[in-house]
Design a binder for these strands. Sequence first.
DNA 1: CATGCCCCCTGCACGC
DNA 2: TGCGTGCAGGGGGCAT
Length: 302
Amino acid sequence: MPELPEVETVRRGLERAMEGQRLVKVEVRRGDLRWPLPKDFAQRLKGKTVTGIGRRAKYLLADLSSGDVLLMHLGMSGSFHVFREQDRQLGRYHHHRDKHVAHDHLVFYMASGATVTFNDPRRFGSMKLVPRAQLDDEPLLKGLGPEPLGNAFDAAMLAQACRGKKTSLKAALLDQRVVAGLGNIYVCEALYRAHLSPKRMASTIAGRKGEPNERAQRLVESIKAVLNEAIKSGGSSLRDHRRTDGDLGMFQHNFRVYDREGEPCPAPYPPPLAGGEGACGGIVKRIVQNGRSTFYCPVCQK
DNA sequence: CATGCCCCCTGCACGC
DNA sequence: TGCGTGCAGGGGGCAT
């Protein structure tokens, strides 16, 4: 599910439900996520107040009054669901999907009466408690590249990170050390918007000394634009992603190439009505790079 | 150091 | 209807 826009959508939902709230109880129904939760996991959370919910790349960070930070990753299929007190009073506890209950591995009981469940069928998600003072040395966060929506992320920075890389642009953008938070969908969509081929060598967005060229500029603008639009839409719901209130994200309806193999290239965007012809005339192609699907238009992405 | 591959796990769509 | 196959939004760990 979750790339930066989905994680940010979840962060905002958790913030509403948890910020300033005390954790009355934490129930671990299945602790064997990506790695096993420590035995004292629930005990270290119980009675603590969540002072804030942050995000770094695809990680969520819950600040606790104990001085710990709860580091959370959704993996491929993780989701959070907030049940408000009034929902439970109305008997709507599981009105969304019965199958949701099957993989509710964690339940957070807030002092407000709300409950927050963590659901993850594939259990690629993870949780880790880290003392705030040690966050700077946390191995999971240490190697992460810049936040793509931060001011520091610009053409010069991206070009520098891609300088001398002997790999495709697609692989470089998926590398969280180059830029942190993109995944398979938004890399495909950003490259499409920048008219850049996913097969192009990453180093070709930089000059000899690593200075940015016009391609680097286009790419950065495309990355920021697609992420901002996706966040506005609550992210993309293909299978598992939901907003914390259970509603679907909507950005999947705005995909221009992802999962659109065989369809006409939508250029110029928005696409022409059915039967019409796009300006480019290309057909969206699917290839496999580094073991993962890439979707792109071979005509207008060079 | 850099790069690519395998694997963790479950669910779903597809073809037969 | 059932069964086998391949594929899925991520990333840690390992071999080369």
